[in-house]
């Protein structure tokens, strides 16, 4: 494992910690898209089905369990916590699941490497992860007064994707048989989706102003 991959994973973990701290600390999930969180949970479930059959390292197994656990907790809090659920912007979070899930499923069926249930679901998770942030970005555009934690959450998540690309470039040059067009294409698409957000994030940081995305 190289330093980019490790840093990427840590950013991913940190983004989840920031989100959980926000939700449980201030008992509010304002500005957070439940749809994005549920899609991430679906991504983790479909990708990590091999958790007990394909052992890579203790690190991988622990991280998989952490991601499954924390994303379940986030969805649980937003849907069922007596206080937290009241702060969810349900009317604003209108992105249609089907718009993201259906194309991912079709592409997975069309391009899967091998046609086994696990492999098709794994491919599905790669496509779905690339677009799962979209409901969150749409919700951010509609949210006035985005709080710092929400902005930082999306920033950390975007950093994780950027670092994974550096990891792939590194592996491309250091490992002989490292050619993964599907994963790379989806990863690059996913990172491009964040570009607009990054632009405004840095702008607000530079000018010391509150983050606001133009509608």
């Amino acid at each position: 494992m190289n330093v980019f991959r490790l840093a990427g994973d840590m950013m991913h973990l940190l983004s989840i910690v920031v989100l959980l701290l926000k939700i449980t600390g201030i008992k509010s999930c304002r500005g957070i898209s439940l749809k994005t969180q549920e899609l991430y949970l679906l991504v983790f479930i479909t990708r990590y089905l091999d958790i007990f059959t394909n052992f890579v390292s203790l690190y991988n197994t622990v991280m998989k369990l952490v991601f499954l656990g924390t994303s379940s907790a986030i969805v649980y809090y937003m849907r069922y916590d007596r206080i937290i659920k009241l702060t969810y912007d349900k009317e604003q979070d209108t992105f249609k699941y089907l718009l993201l899930v259906a194309p991912s499923a079709v592409l997975a069926l069309a391009t899967s490497h091998v046609y086994t249930v696990l492999e098709v679901l794994w491919t599905f998770s790669i496509y779905l992860e690339a677009v799962a942030i979209m409901p969150q970005l749409v919700l951010l555009q509609r949210t006035q007064n985005i709080d710092n934690l929400t902005g930082n959450y999306v920033f950390l998540l975007g950093s994780y994707r950027g670092l994974y690309i550096l990891n792939w470039i590194y592996r491309f040059f250091t490992e002989k048989h490292y050619r993964q067009w599907l994963v790379w294409t989806c990863g690059v698409v996913q990172t491009i989706i964040y570009c607009d957000f990054f632009y405004y994030y840095f702008l607000s940081w530079q000018n010391n102003e509150k983050l606001a995305l133009p509608a």
Binding site: D50, V56, N60, M63, T123, I126, N167, H177, R179
Partner: peptide
């Protein structure tokens, strides 16, 4: 083969 390699990432 290529998809196997990605399985060591998260």
């Amino acid at each position: 083969k290529d998809s196997k390699a990605a399985k060591d990432e998260l």
